[in-house]
Simulated scan of single mutants.
Amino acid sequence: MTLVDMTPQFAPSALTWTLPAKAYSSEDTFAQERAKIFTKNWMLFSWSEKIPNPGDYVRGTVAGYSVFALRGDDGVVRAFHNVCRHRGAELVGGASGHCGKLIVCPYHSWGFDRAGLLKRARDFGGDHSFDPVEWGLYPVDCAEWRGLVFLRIERGGESLREWLGAIDTMAADYPLEQQHYFMSKDRDVDVDWKTYGDNYLECYHCQTMHPGLCASMDINQYKIDVHYDEKFFHLHAPARDGGLTRGLYFYRFPVLMLNLYDWGSSIATVEPLGPGRIRHINWYFFTDVSPEKAEANRQSAEWSAQIVSEDIDIILGVQRNLNAGVYQRGPVSPKYEHGVLGFQNMVRDALADPAPAARQVAAE
Results as ranks from 00 to 15, higher is better:
residue 103 I to Q: 00
residue 336 Y to F: 15
residue 53 N to V: 01
residue 336 Y to R: 01
residue 104 V to F: 11
residue 198 D to W: 01
residue 109 S to D: 11
residue 188 D to T: 15
residue 243 G to M: 09
residue 166 A to H: 06
residue 243 G to P: 12
residue 58 V to D: 12
residue 6 M to W: 10
residue 252 R to A: 12
residue 261 Y to C: 13
residue 108 H to T: 03
residue 92 V to R: 07
residue 203 C to N: 14
residue 139 P to C: 04
residue 48 S to R: 03
residue 61 T to P: 03
residue 283 W to M: 05
residue 208 T to H: 10
residue 145 W to L: 06
residue 134 E to N: 12
residue 20 P to T: 04
residue 79 A to S: 15
residue 226 V to C: 03
residue 337 E to G: 07
residue 304 S to M: 04
residue 26 S to Q: 06
residue 167 I to G: 00
residue 119 K to P: 07
residue 254 P to N: 08
residue 16 T to S: 03
residue 122 R to Q: 14
residue 169 T to H: 14
residue 64 G to W: 09
residue 202 E to L: 10
residue 31 A to E: 14
residue 298 R to S: 06
residue 73 D to E: 13
residue 288 D to P: 01
residue 124 F to K: 01
residue 281 I to Q: 01
residue 103 I to M: 02
residue 210 H to Q: 12
residue 234 H to G: 08
residue 215 A to D: 15
residue 264 G to E: 06
residue 129 S to P: 11
residue 132 P to H: 09
residue 283 W to T: 01
residue 182 F to H: 02
residue 316 L to I: 15
residue 46 S to M: 03
residue 302 E to L: 11
residue 13 S to Y: 09
residue 136 G to S: 00
residue 90 E to D: 11
residue 79 A to W: 02
residue 261 Y to R: 14
residue 210 H to S: 06
residue 14 A to S: 14
residue 78 R to S: 08
residue 157 G to K: 03
residue 288 D to S: 04
residue 144 E to M: 06
residue 57 Y to C: 00
residue 149 V to E: 02
residue 232 F to Y: 06
residue 44 L to V: 01
residue 32 Q to V: 02
residue 91 L to S: 02
residue 325 G to D: 05
residue 13 S to M: 04
residue 231 K to L: 09
residue 317 G to Y: 14
residue 364 E to G: 05
residue 16 T to G: 10
residue 322 L to I: 07
residue 111 G to P: 15
residue 231 K to I: 05
residue 178 Q to V: 05
residue 295 E to Q: 12
residue 301 A to F: 05
residue 262 D to Y: 07
residue 326 V to A: 11
residue 48 S to Y: 06
residue 59 R to F: 04
residue 70 L to M: 10
residue 57 Y to N: 12
residue 344 Q to Y: 07
residue 116 G to P: 11
residue 276 G to W: 00
residue 131 D to Y: 09
residue 75 G to K: 04
residue 260 L to K: 00
residue 198 D to C: 00
residue 129 S to C: 15
residue 131 D to V: 09
residue 289 V to E: 02
residue 320 R to S: 05
residue 357 A to Q: 13
residue 170 M to R: 15
residue 346 M to N: 00
residue 188 D to Y: 04
residue 140 V to P: 02
residue 276 G to T: 14
residue 334 P to V: 02
residue 53 N to T: 10
residue 302 E to A: 10
residue 360 Q to S: 06
residue 329 R to N: 00
residue 46 S to E: 09
residue 81 H to F: 12
